[in-house]
């Protein structure tokens, strides 16, 4: 990697100030950024580590009953501390990567990166979560804007993610054999006012809601109600599977998620 300075602010305000430096980059758990730096694909002047900011870490329940997760909370912490309040989300967190990834990687980092095969975007979108930053609150439906693209502005930090807790939910991930990222991952969440289905790994536009399935499942929450697989057009096609295969897996994983949600 190229040489850079590193800062470890302990407050959001200090982090925001540090990020105003030219070519500064925020560092969450580093599970994407550090490999990128090692390959010399990125050359920040300053890395601003968010790891020392206590106020963006932790899991709690808000007044409205939503599960609130600090942006700097690791996957391992979510897996443990959300287990009773939002088991489907905890299970998702507990199956990201391997123990080393889960003990370093953070929810804020994952959502800010918005990798098209990452797990968290599916949970956030299916839950209708709110992404809270140092300046505003963004609804998940507005937040995800395509592969590696989000509504975040430069220097904006995810401080918290608020998940309305569904009546039932489950996440089913079919792993890409090499990376074990989601080849296709489907998060199904049933709320009193309807069902939301979010798909990761499959689309060239990143995470998306499968609205046909949502409509069908909102009237009949059973695996049999899951519609036929969507078209493979616009789905990722690569070494690990064609667009048609991914589209097929969306239906299979949705059925399995509905069955698992019970």
């Amino acid at each position: 990697m190229y040489s850079f300075d590193i800062q470890r602010p302990t407050s959001i305000a200090d982090a925001v100030a540090a990020l105003s430096t030219d070519e500064a980059l925020p560092l969450g758990g580093g599970q994407t950024l550090i490999p990128t730096l090692k390959q010399r694909l990125s050359a920040p002047s300053v890395l601003v580590s968010l790891g020392a900011i206590a106020e963006i870490k932790g899991v709690c329940t808000g007044d409205d009953g939503a599960l609130c997760i600090g942006g700097g909370t690791t996957h391992a912490t979510v897996a443990k501390e959300a287990a009773s309040s939002y088991p489907a989300l905890a299970a998702l967190a507990g199956n990201i990567g391997d123990p080393a990834v889960r003990n370093r990687g953070t929810i804020g980092g994952s959502l800010a990166n918005n990798d098209p095969s990452a797990c968290y975007p599916a949970a956030a979108l299916a839950s209708g979560a709110t992404i809270v930053t140092n300046t505003r609150s963004i609804a998940a439906d507005d937040y995800f804007q395509g592969m590696f693209a989000t509504a975040l502005n430069e220097g904006e930090i995810i401080t918290e993610v608020r998940f309305p807790v569904p009546e039932k939910a489950a996440y089913m991930k079919f792993e890409q054999p090499a990376s074990r990222f989601a080849l296709v991952g489907v998060f199904v969440a049933k709320y009193a006012d309807g069902v939301r289905v979010a798909v990761t790994g499959a689309s060239e536009d990143g995470v998306f809601r499968w609205t046909e399935a949502e409509a069908a499942l909102s009237s009949n929450f059973s695996a049999d109600a899951v519609p036929a697989a969507p078209s493979g057009d616009g789905m990722i096609s690569d070494l690990h599977g064609s667009g048609a295969y991914r589209a097929h897996l969306i239906a299979v994983m949705t059925k399995r998620a509905v069955a698992a949600a019970g």
Partner: peptide, 15 residues
């Protein structure tokens, strides 16, 4: 080989 999931699915479905 490799008899990957996508290749098995494609074979089953004649793709």
């Amino acid at each position: 080989m490799p008899v990957s999931p996508s290749r098995v699915w494609a074979a089953i479905n004649g793709q």
